[in-house]
Amino acid sequence: MLSPQTPITKPVKLSVRDMDFRYGEKKVLDGLSMDIQAERVTAIIGPSGCGKSTFLKCFNRIHEVSSAVKVTGDIKIDGVDIYRGGIDEVDLRRRVGMVFQKPNPFPKSIYENVAFGPRLFGVKDRTTLDGLVESALRKAALWEEVKDRLKESATGMSGGQQQRLCIARALAVNPEVLLMDEPCSALDPIATAKIEELIFELKENLTIVIVTHNMQQAARVSDYTAFFWLGKLIEMDLTERIFTTPRERMTEDYLTGRFG
């Protein structure tokens, strides 16, 4: 797949202004500002430990599940502040789905994994559920492989299948944004190609933010790329430009492997 054409500017879906992020006392993100456009794929790249995952988790506040964190500055979705704008984090997470680095299917059947989200929101009718499960699995390009074994345990699937199941699970609640944290790092090239193809199709009506350590992948799938270093945003631009004519010396060094 070639890198995408220079896209037409879309409305801003997520906007971040002057954000600081701390785990307890430890500052991990420092004065970040950026806009993420709707129905585009934005890639986040940068060396290990620079705060990419942390940044991603700010959009659905999932770090609050396990750690004590402190966020200052503004993060808005469709212009509404997600920390102070009266949005409840449970609602937010329904609208902002997430796919984790390691596939994390529930120890339930394939069907139950995908139906889990809709059930949470009160869908009980069997035919509606069946429909939602099938369409989510189709969108995740998994339907053909699993349609005859929906009742089997999800933990028995291959890593690539599990990751696509997790994507289907996230899609089944019809999110507006999909956050992907190194979704292919545990997968082989074939499974990776499948997921990249998927990302390409999904951006039709989803805003996607993807963290990746794989530069080719960022170049292949994303419209915009942001380069992080030590908790700071160094540069963000059209992916094509970042990879051909970066403005910052540091970005160029990182991309060419002359980092140090």
């Binding site: 409840d88 449970v90 609602d91 809709p118 949470l120 929101f121 009160g122 509606t128 939602l132």
Partner: peptide, 13 residues
């Protein structure tokens, strides 16, 4: 796709 028939989440909360 058609939006989910979301029920108010008051009970869960």
């Amino acid at each position: 796709p058609a939006p989910l028939p979301f029920r108010p989440r008051r009970f869960a909360r």
